[in-house]
Nucleic acid binder design. Sequence first.
RNA 1: GUGGGCGUCGCCUAGAGGCCUAAGGCGCCAGGUUGUGGCCCUGGUAUUCGCGGGUUCGAAUCCCGCCGUCCACCCCA
Length: 430
Amino acid sequence: MFQAPRGTRDLLPAEHRVRDRITAVVQEQARLCGYGFIEPPTFENAELYSRGVGEATDIVEKEMYVFEDRGGERLALRPEGTASVCRAYLQHGMANLPQPVKLAYIAPMFRYERPQAGRFRQHTQFGIEALGVRDAALDAEVMDLGWRIAEQLGLRDLVLLINSIGDLEDRRAYVPKLRAHFEPHLEQIAPDDRARFQRAPMRLLDSKDERTRPYQEGAPLITEHLSAESAAYYAAVKDQLDALGIRYEERPSLVRGLDYYTHTVFELVPNEPSGSQTTLLAGGRYDGLIEQIGGPPTPGIGFGMGIDRFALQLREQGLVDDAEEQPQVIIAALGAGAASAAGGLAGQLRRAGISATLAFGGRSLKAQLRHAGRAGCRWTIIVGERGLAAGTVTLRDMASAEQRDLPLEAVVNEVAGAAPYTENSPPTAE
RNA sequence: GUGGGCGUCGCCUAGAGGCCUAAGGCGCCAGGUUGUGGCCCUGGUAUUCGCGGGUUCGAAUCCCGCCGUCCACCCCA
């Protein structure tokens, strides 16, 4: 039997309802900040990512789904959203629009990773990018948007981790100092971390390896080596966050795995993580990215939010109600002559905004009612040849078991006029 | 890429070398006579225990390999 490919899954109705709820909140909050939604293609020229995300990143180096199409183009399934949005900004000349240009998307991302809790080979992200402006207030606004989404969904006990990793100049000055700190201990630290020493020395700061940890003590921090201008920018961002009343924590070891980040970086995480893949939302400023992919120097900031991880977190915090919505009316049809009348009635009910379905399958009335009872609908309408001869159908209230005959033309109004049925109350035994 | 746990009906679970041609619960389907549900009762729903080898007179139960899945590392949303 076929199975969904490793690391992918079918989002079944119960889970899809959770996603719909998240999607609704996200769209509303993005709208409140003035974001317009865009949908970039699912695959792009592979080089867009190696140039944008960074040649030496894990994403590009070992996680991209790269393929050649029949025309010989080297393409990649989108591993992250920012590069595409920036490409679109350039391609459509959005630098001529009032800045910042605020763009949002909800789209699947693909990375060849080993699946585990909260990590998939295909996952869906909501993301936003605000392009063309470098302003501490915008940084804070972006983080506040992420914060509000969590708030609106009812999530508790989250914390926003922030840091500044400065600009290229800052890091050019800082990295040698960092290397100098670790260099004497290269023999002692973990082999993986020795490689990092060369390629991504800032990662040494958040290594979890027991062999490396002792040497993290006393290492120089980027935040202590920012230029006066960068430090002032970071301070301004924090002032803005304070004004917004967001609970944040500075985390000097916070470095992101994509090369394009500058200055502000942040992550939204649960206070007390239960698993290990718990970053709900992460992002930062990337003032060099657009230039990297061939545009003019253009500042930008944004984040990616793991919709699947939000769903997981909602479940974990007991914020998911799995009750599924049942049709308000189930129509039972008796006899071949009643089938088309039943179908017509179902259509009329739906046009009146009442959810209705037939008890399909040509079964006995008993079976059709049993089906209706189990489904938990409010009413059953029995359409039978006998009643039809007199122009009536039977409307049965499933909770009270009361029923009466009504003219076929009257039943839609009768049901529409009743109090809305909100609770999915199970039938009670008499 | 590395390490570990687990794989019996749609779901949950029993089973630990012969009494298992696999049991129970949930769910689903049908029926309990004539056009009426929920409770109850009856029946149906895995020719087979992820797949392939091996050990044995005999394997769902032991061994090996593969696959799948879950978890952790790495990394990340």
